[in-house]
Computed example of a mutant assay.
Amino acid sequence: MTTQRPLAAALPAAIAAALAAVIGTGGANVAIAQSSSILLNNDTNTEIVLQDGTSVQVDPVTGNLTATPLDPQACTGTANCDDVQVDITSFSASPTSVSQGGNVSFSWNSRGAWECTGSGLTGTTWNSTGKLPQGNQSVNTGSLSPDDYIADLLCENGPVTDTRQVSFTVVSGGGGGPQNCIDEGRVPPAGLTQDTTALSNIFNQNFSDPTLTWGDVFGGPFPDSGSPYWKTQRDQYISLEFTTAGVPTGTSGRFELNNPQSSFNFGQTLVTFSQCPGDFLDQEDSDCKKLITNGGINWEVTTASGLFNECELEPNTTYYLNALHTTISQPPFQWQCDIPPGTARPADCGDLVTAN
């Protein structure tokens, strides 16, 4: 860094004071280039010691903190980093047996790492760099053939690394999800695939964020709320996994789809709340399936039955919110966007999605 800018000039006073305490300098006029340590305040209170001469920069807009040592390979004040420890304290996969097309969830925690990298599962979203030192990720197995698999996790701080592995099995199911769903024929419609990146915005621009779980779309676990936009490509459906575990009995809400009133193509959408991914067949509770045009489904977590106009969700149960742009409610299902703004066969179809 060519200049040293006082921290107070770059950030509001409260943020500057807090960051000054973290960086650990003694003067009232703290420079961003000052070196000491960074403390990550979490359950393990991870401390990252910086090499002398490290340039520490704070982006006043995003709040991102970047530390660049003079020696890119150095991670502490010692040249060989012998005193640095990177430790993956836990790494797990759930479930350990999943039907092809279902999702496997990875969870991990580490200490002393800058970032982590996933590998071992070619063709999936697990194989990527830039993962946080602690996190969770749901990975769809649609691209994996039935077999035993080992997922690798590498966490690193400069040249110091730690690795862990977990194993799981993908079983044959034609993309059907849990075995009971396969046995009952509650599998995704033939010829359709899951849209795993369906998020968009009012300007009809695609986002690369995954759309595999309720939290991917609404920002937090069920029943978190929000009003994003999504759209599916031709011959694709959406399936969002969520669980009612920990949700108090009696909790209720509404899932709604409406015309995005923008450059989107728009049409009817068949929606189900099902215990099977990609399942658009009739549900035991008829209120858990609906062909929607500017409307929605009311739901309640309950042990009761026979509720009027409410989809009854059992407590402590995994569900899937399934959505398919179509004009029919019975198989054979076909993707169709029936109210396009200017084309008879649009390539995609979108909605304003609201959960409350």
Rank of each mutant, 00 (worst) to 15 (best):
D59I: 05
I38L: 14
L50A: 08
G63A: 08
G27E: 06
G53M: 05
S35Y: 02
P60S: 09
N64W: 11
I38A: 12
G53K: 02
I32D: 09
L65H: 04
V56F: 07
V56H: 00
L39S: 13
N29M: 13
Q51G: 13
G53V: 03
S36P: 03
E47I: 14
A20Y: 02
V61I: 15
T62P: 01
P60K: 03
D59S: 09
T25F: 05
A67W: 03
A21D: 12
Q34F: 11
V56N: 02
A20W: 02
V22T: 10
V49H: 10
A14R: 03
A21Q: 07
A18K: 06
A28V: 05
G27I: 01
T54S: 08
A14D: 11
A67V: 04
P60L: 08
A67S: 11
G53F: 07
T62Y: 06
A17C: 04
A17N: 08
V30Y: 00
L39Q: 11
A14M: 06
T62F: 08
G26L: 04
D43A: 15
S37I: 07
A17E: 09
I48N: 07
D59Q: 06
A18S: 14
V58H: 05
Q34W: 10
G27D: 11
L19G: 01
G53H: 05
N45Q: 12
T62L: 11
A31M: 14
S37F: 13
T54A: 06
I38F: 13
Q51I: 07
V61Q: 15
I23E: 00
I15V: 13
T68R: 06
I32L: 15
A21I: 03
N42W: 09
I32A: 15
N42K: 08
A17P: 00
A20P: 02
D59L: 05
V22M: 10
A20I: 02
N45E: 14
T46V: 12
A33P: 03
N45H: 10
A31P: 07
T54W: 00
G24Y: 01
S55V: 13
T68Y: 04
Q57D: 13
G24E: 03
G53W: 04
T46Q: 08
L40V: 15
Q51D: 14
G27C: 06
D43S: 15
V61P: 04
L50P: 00
A18W: 05
T46Y: 05
N64A: 15
L40D: 15
S36H: 10
S55D: 15
V61Y: 12
G63N: 04
A13P: 00
S55I: 13
S35V: 01
S35Q: 04
D52V: 12
G27V: 02
L19I: 05
A33V: 06
S37E: 13
D59A: 07
G24F: 02
S55A: 15
L65E: 05
A28H: 04
I38R: 02
G24I: 00
A13F: 03
L39T: 14
T44W: 07
I32V: 12
I15G: 05
